[in-house]
Design a binder for these strands. Structure first.
Lengths: 205, 205
DNA sequence: ACGCTAACTGACCGATCGGTCAGAGTCTGC
DNA sequence: GCAGACTCTGACCGATCGGTCAGTTAGCGT
């Protein structure tokens, strides 16, 4: 992926604990929040001591940073690609494909940032993500900054973050095969982000 | 300090502090989360002591309960009305109007519940809200529990919760007059929730 | 055998957490 | 004047927070 790996072949167990801790921490951060997760909880859930957590990560914030960075790196590549493309319907459609894949792969990371990003300002990776979101919006909706387009983008982002994590809690009726979720998500996000040609003026009220 | 309450003698200064604390607590809960908010922070922000907070509310959980209850009561009325109505396009449209008003009036409460509801189970009002959401989904999508409809509803709910609170942080370019936001929101939510018969031509290549 | 180093841990620290309690100040009705 | 209720507070409690540190392992090159 996007991590520095001097010699991947000869590092079998080397960073096993580090990876386990990252995975456990991500689940906790997304489920109960960064502030609501204690280092002790993470350590217990991963089967280590609190001291071990602080051995692998210099601080709780650094742990959050490392946990979210791979997702932000991936998003950055997507935004770069979108920004350097022609604004055709074709490139837009390609972007949506990539974006959906990103949402599905990093759903916990996205949920963590979307739900708590505003309260975690000052942490490196959070600010970086915030800047990326701004770049993404301006790349998507060029100059016209209409209210409706802003809301459409926010709904797509916040809605996906909620649906893919918290939503599954309330609608666990079907564990919907991944591919089915993907198609549904793509359909809805496309509706929201694509410049829909004709939209009836909501009936007179 | 603050103003001498100039409101009717019917409701004297009796519960002034209580109301201030509720308002401050709601902002904090929505902004930094329930776990991330300390009673001391709430007390400081409201200009009281921590002991005062615990005088008006028997516990932190009880404070959350009282803060969210008005919103849940309002939502319950809306769901009751929807459930007892005929499933016509007309009643559906009326529901959406009420729902949008609800989202706008109680945006902080909705945001709090949507973002943290899963981690706050066991608190009375949270469980009640969870049951209401389930009732709402079943009232909206009768028997057909398709993946796409579940996602559409989740996107509308989670997207609105995000857009109306956190989203405003990232897109503060316009403080969009309330009425404009309302129309945009109604347009998008209608698209998402209304059983759109035919909305496929997005691939405008 | 040795020493070096990465991995890991318990004991401990000051700060803060939610919560309890014994009052102090203020207002009212008698 | 005074009793009582209401509002508010500081002092205090045990638990837990994020974080530090000295020390114990186990593996590896020499």
């Amino acid at each position: 992926m996007t991590q520095k790996n001097p010699d991947p072949a000869q590092h079998p167990i080397r960073h096993r604990a580090s990876g386990e801790l990252r995975a456990v921490a991500l689940e906790q951060f997304s489920a109960v929040g960064f502030a609501g997760t204690s280092l002790q909880q993470i350590a217990d859930a991963a089967g280590y001591s609190k001291s071990s957590v602080l051995y692998h990560f210099v601080s709780k914030e650094a742990l959050l940073d490392e946990v979210l960075t791979p997702a932000i790196n991936c998003l950055e590549e997507i935004v770069d690609r979108l920004a350097s493309s022609a604004g055709t319907a074709q490139t837009r459609s390609e972007f949506i494909d990539e974006f959906i894949d990103f949402l599905l792969e990093f759903r916990l990371e996205v949920n963590t940032f979307i739900n708590q990003g505003q309260s975690l300002r000052g942490i490196g990776v959070i600010d970086r993500a915030g800047r990326l979101i701004l770049r993404l919006t301006s790349a998507l909706r060029g100059d016209d900054t209409s209210t409706i387009d802003g809301i459409r983008f926010g709904m797509a982002l916040g809605g996906a973050a909620y649906t893919l994590v918290a939503g599954a809690t309330y609608f666990p009726d079907q564990v919907s095969p991944e591919e089915e979720v993907r198609q549904a998500l793509q359909s809805v996000v496309t509706e929201l982000l694509a410049p829909v040609p004709l939209r009836r003026p909501i009936e007179g009220k």
